[in-house]
Amino acid sequence: MSETSPLTPGPIGSDHPASDRSWRIWTSVFIAGFVLVSLVIGFVILPWRSESGVDPFTAICRALGLPGSEKIPPDPGAAKASAPASNVTWTIETNRLLSNASAAKGTALAKDTCGACHGEDGKSTDPEQFPNLAGQSQAAIFKELADFQSGDRKSDIMAPIAQALTREQMADVAAYYAAQKPDDLRAADSAVMLKVDLLAREGDPKRGIPSCDSCHGPSRSGPEDAPLLLGQSAPYIEKQIGNFGSQTRHNDVFERMRTIAHQLTPEEAHALAIYYHGMPASN
């Protein structure tokens, strides 16, 4: 047996050390050159050529993604920027406030104050005027209360009530109503025209109207503060769509509802309201 077994080969290229070395040198040179040329093209030549009005150094810094190198255009409009549609933001603090809220603490408030109109169990005494709150999303109730307090949503009845509450109280009472059991309903799809049924479930791509369910349905994926619609009274829903359409109500951040409501015909708004009024699920 020789010193090195056939299973453990010697160093690569040990047969021809000279030719191997030059091969290694030239491949290294080629690869290094290729990388260098690519870097120069990608980070120097292309950014410099495509950036109009930027000096080469800044263009290169921007291409490298160095913070502070970006040229932010002047913004004279910011001086007279409109007030935000709502003060409520979904920051970590807000989310923490909502998740730390106690439904038990909200009970007293619901009994003493809210219950007279919205019902102690969240079933409204007059659903055409006062929305049902049982099973409503906590985030939605909290946001509307906060908007009534700040005046971003106008209501002569709700403004003084909301102004008397702390943020913790709003979160607690929202948690209480979110935990109440709503009536067992399903969308009244057989009661309305087919077209609106499609609008509610699939939207209208031609007009750029997303389906109502994409934000207000049980499997929604839109903004946190979008309320659930099923089980609200038809006249209440229709009135709110009308208020958004006429800009009377404008606490929808980024005009999400105003642009949609503006495009709905009165017939569609009416039919959608009936659809979400719902019917007993056992029917």
Binding site: I41, G42, I45, L46, P47, R49, S50, R62, A63, L64, G65, L66, P67, E70, I72, D75, G77, A78, A79, K80, A81, S82, A83, P84, A85, S86, N87, T89, W90, T91, I92, V253, F254, E255
Partner: peptide, 30 residues
């Protein structure tokens, strides 16, 4: 891509997504 200077737009500028609605630059009127 060389002649037409095609490359992904490179601009690194951060903004707090939770409070974009309160920002002056991205206010409704602006």
């Amino acid at each position: 891509s060389f002649v037409m200077a095609l490359h992904p737009p490179s601009h690194v500028e951060s903004i707090d997504p939770a409070t974009v609605s309160q920002s002056k630059e991205f206010a409704e009127s602006n």
